[in-house]
Amino acid sequence: MEYILVIIILFISILVYFKIADKYNIIDKPNHRSAHTKITLRGGGIIFPVAFIVFCLFNLIETIHNYWSFGLGLLAICTISFIDDVKTLSNKIRLSVHLISVILLLYFTGAFNLTPFWTWPILFVMIIGTLNAYNFMDGINGMTGIYSFVTLCSLAYINKDIIRFTDENFIIYPILACLVFLFFNFRKKAKCFAGDVGSMGIGFWVIGLITLLIMRTGEYKYILLLSIYGMEVVLTITERILLRENIFEAHRRHLYQLFANEKKISHLVISSVYAVCQLLINIFLIYSQFPIWVIILIIFIPLGGIYLGLKWKLKKKYNL
């Protein structure tokens, strides 16, 4: 009954937001980087911080004791991201808030107590890099929602059947938010896009859960629960560096962009393929006893080769 009530609240919240976004012209206009061609409401991903607020209301005492630092970090990064959706902010302002949010996230996960101090800068770089990867990959209908849904369901399974590392509702609530968001976004003509508030919000939540899991188990292999995004972004940035391009400028070099823009493959098909690939990796990851470097050798060297081969073939065909 609780989950049905949460879904109803989230549906009402996003419908109210649509009215506000329409009134104040919070929209996403297509540009040279976009894979869409029509003006669409932006910021539908506000449902993710709303889901956390609802989580707090249903779990008030526990939130005050256990989740206050995570909540402050999430709301800070979502607030600055929403403002950036409406009005472009300087990189210094955004990065400053991101750093504060990551500090709060690491405090929440216990990383400052469980890891040596010399690893903290590495954790900062990895988390901020992963947050930006989430943002980079949020370019077509369904991608952010269904990819996050698969990762969260994998985490829920691990929490229930492998090792309990957090409260069950702390994973279920973002899953419900993904389902509601997908209802409006997983369409040929999306009702809304996630915006930075969505990609950063759900990315922060997923990264927080994975970091909690790693701190609880000491198994760094769980980083690979986001490996498809990681591989795509790392290989694309490497390509742009080799081509001497400004990696901070908008572009259309991601493989999913080539499939969507040049081959005109359905956004929903592309998003589903990415999610299924990550799901298969997650299944192997959960049940395998191999160390992380063996998993990388078995899966990601061949997968990286396939990725580069497909990209080279598309670029050659379309003279990119």
Rank of each mutant, 00 (worst) to 15 (best):
E2D: 12
Y3D: 04
L5Q: 14
I7G: 03
I9Y: 11
I9R: 13
I14R: 13
F18Y: 13
A21H: 11
D22M: 11
K23S: 14
Y24I: 15
I27N: 15
P30E: 10
S34F: 08
H36G: 00
K38S: 11
K38V: 11
G43W: 08
G43A: 10
G44Q: 10
G45V: 02
F48C: 07
P49N: 11
V50C: 13
I53M: 13
I53Y: 07
C56G: 05
L57R: 15
I61S: 14
E62K: 09
T63E: 04
I64H: 00
H65A: 05
N66M: 01
S69D: 02
L72N: 06
L72R: 01
A76Y: 10
I77R: 14
C78H: 12
K87C: 14
V97Q: 15
H98R: 14
H98W: 13
L99K: 15
I100Q: 13
S101L: 11
Y107R: 02
L114D: 07
L114R: 02
W120Y: 09
P121I: 08
P121H: 10
P121K: 11
L123D: 11
F124Y: 15
M126Y: 10
I127R: 12
I127Y: 12
I128F: 12
T130P: 07
N132T: 08
Y134Q: 04
M137F: 02
I140V: 02
T144I: 04
S148Q: 01
V150P: 00
S154I: 00
L155W: 01
N159P: 02
I162H: 06
F165G: 00
T166I: 02
N169P: 00
N169T: 02
N169W: 03
Y173I: 02
I175Q: 01
L179K: 00
F184C: 10
F184Y: 06
N185Q: 10
K189T: 09
A190E: 07
K191G: 12
A194C: 07
S199A: 08
S199P: 09
S199Y: 06
G201I: 03
W205R: 02
L209D: 03
L213R: 04
M215L: 03
R216C: 10
G218I: 10
G218V: 13
Y220P: 10
L226S: 00
L226N: 02
I228D: 11
Y229I: 12
G230I: 04
M231V: 04
E232P: 09
E232Q: 01
V233W: 10
L235S: 07
I237Q: 06
R244Y: 00
E245P: 05
I247R: 03
I247H: 01
F248I: 10
L255M: 09
Q257A: 07
A260G: 02
K263W: 12
K264G: 03
S266Q: 05
I270A: 07
L279K: 03
L280V: 05
I281A: 04
N282Q: 03
Y287V: 14
Y287N: 13
Y287D: 13
F290T: 15
I296H: 12
I299Q: 09
F300K: 06
I301C: 14
G309E: 02
L310D: 06
K311H: 05
K316M: 08
